[in-house]
Design a protein around this nucleic acid. Structure first.
Length: 474
RNA sequence: GUCCCCAUCGUCUAGAGGCCUAGGACACCAGCCUUUCACGUUGGUAACACGGGUUCGAAUCCCGUUGGGGACGCCA
């Protein structure tokens, strides 16, 4: 049997992180079994579905590398087919028209709650003669669900789960206006699309019982279900926006790499021994439903960030430069070819220190600043009269150097030694003058990348002019 | 309220009756490295929710308690 999996989001908001994980699991499962991974947009709620949300889902999936294997199916477009199945069921006496009004249903629920019974429709039109139908009330079509026995789901993650059929009521298939409900649409679409495995959030587990009844009523074979636990916030409660319930695009904006997000999501509720850093090929080879945990996982930004730092270090310098370029241009102005070259040469050291693309862009800014470069508060404080005097000496020494990191370092060490100073006492002012900050990649390497003219210029900008070197050292 | 599901360090998890003195990762703390910050590296703190069984033996199986989550729409 060829595996056909699907991701079926409703376009009522962005592609959130939980949805992304569901998509990832479906994608991995399909790849692992050399099957297909499809996308279905569940847009039957015309009020809440938006084009913007549809675009956000496509973009988010694309960014994560989870594009479907076939063009997406739009559920609303299939409403006719859904209604046809409902009429079919009606003809086969497996469904019936119900004329209960919303007010009646409200009363039913209130009464059931007061009596401590399940809040269900009582089936009052199930066997009633349609001739008794009230005038002018458009009926809904309900499934004639079994009333005895129990319904069993052999869930691949949760194991066998059963519910007594008395707990379930006769669900609405077709609304009074003739449009299909979600339950009907999902079952018909999954069947028609040849879906073999339904991998989705735990919140659908109870829906699966009702869907199972529908499959039976249609005499269709049921797909295999796998309900994966939801992602919770750090406090164990529902994931809130503040805690990560954001659109995938928000993670992109925060400077996370898609590889990192995927790796993080994969390890949320799934593990393969002690493996932490998992490549896509490994994930495909190892992924299976059996290893999915049954308990909900809490979202943890710290671990995501740590993974991101790893993938940042693994990324090519070229790629990272192009990733941060737009951000740099926005914050520090246009970037010319020479600056781009500097970024490229400095990237190896820069990326080892960054955790997100945001960090990276910020820490790279000094490479593209025009003189005189802005100094941070700490850098300004560091550059007191004494430090500036040292800089003047250092600049003079550098003038005589071949412009290589190693040689510049020797010159600085010699100067420090001659003045009875520690290297840091010379290097820190130098760093402040050249990068505008007290924190940077190794400073002699920075000097080399920056180039003789620019570096010497920056040193001159901060050095004390016309002060006697002798007095300045003291 | 009714039903369903879940329960190992702070977090993600390994663990499928003896390999467990409970392993790894993130976070945290300390040391080393070092011109700063990182990286790296060495070490450390830290968990089987509780109570009953079953068994020679239980983190692992069963029951209960507690705690958490989810579902109960003519939403999806």
């Amino acid at each position: 049997m060829t595996v056909v999996a699907r991701f079926a989001p409703s376009p009522t908001g962005f592609l959130h992180i939980g949805g992304a994980r569901t998509a990832l699991f479906n994608w991995l499962f399909a790849r692992h079994h050399r099957g297909k991974y499809l996308l279905r947009i569940e847009d039957t709620d015309r009020q809440r579905s938006t084009q913007a949300a549809i675009e956000a889902i496509f973009d988010g999936l694309h960014w994560l590398g989870l594009d479907p294997d076939e063009p997406p199916v739009f559920q609303f477009a299939r409403a006719g087919r859904h209604a046809e199945v409902a009429r079919d069921l009606l003809a086969k006496d497996r469904a019936y028209r119900c004329y209960a009004t919303p007010q009646e249903l409200d009363q039913m629920r209130a009464k059931a709650k007061a009596e401590g019974r399940p809040m269900r429709y009582d089936g009052r039109w199930r066997e009633r003669d349609p001739a008794e139908a009230p005038q002018g009330v458009p009926p809904v079509i309900r499934l004639k669900a079994p009333q005895q026995g129990e319904t069993l789901i052999e869930d691949r993650v949760q194991g066998p789960v059963t519910v007594a059929n008395e707990q379930l009521d006769d669900m609405v298939l077709l609304r009074a206006d003739g449009t299909p409900t979600y339950m009907l649409s999902v079952v018909v679409d999954d069947h028609d699309m040849g879906i073999t495995h339904v991998i989705r959030g735990d919140d659908h587990l109870t829906n699966a019982f009702r869907q199972a009844q529908l499959y039976n009523a249609c005499d269709w074979q049921m797909p295999i279900f796998a309900h994966i636990p939801l992602i919770h916030g750090p406090d164990g409660a529902k994931l809130s926006k503040r805690h990560g319930a954001l659109g995938v695009d928000a993670y992109r904006e925060m400077g996370y790499l898609p590889e990192a997000v995927r790796n993080y999501l994969l390890r949320l509720g799934w593990a393969h021994g002690d493996a932490e850093i998992i490549s896509t090929d490994e994930a495909i080879a190892w992924f299976d439903l059996d290893a999915i945990g049954r308990s909900p996982a809490r979202f943890d930004f710290a671990k995501l960030t740590s993974l991101n730092a790893h993938y940042l270090r693994e990324a090519t310098d070229e790629h990272l430069v192009s990733e941060i370029l737009p951000r740099l241009q926005a914050s520090a102005g246009p970037v010319d070819e020479m600056m781009r070259e500097r970024l490229l040469r400095g990237m190896a050291s820069l990326k080892a220190r960054a955790r997100t693309l945001l960090d990276l862009a910020q820490s790279a800014e000094f490479y593209i600043r025009k003189r005189p470069i802005p100094l941070s508060e700490k850098a300004t404080k560091l550059l007191d009269a004494e430090a500036r005097a040292r800089l003047a000496l250092l600049g003079a020494a550098f003038e005589r150097c071949q412009w290589h990191a190693a040689e510049l370092e020797v010159a600085a060490r010699e100067l420090a030694e001659a003045s009875g100073l520690k290297l840091g006492e010379v290097a820190q002012p130098l760093r402040a003058a050249v990068t505008g900050s007290t924190v940077s990649p190794p400073i002699f390497e920075v000097l080399e990348v920056l180039g003789r003219e620019e570096a010497l210029g920056r040193i001159r900008d901060s050095a004390t002019q016309g002060t006697s070197p002798i007095s300045a050292v003291q």
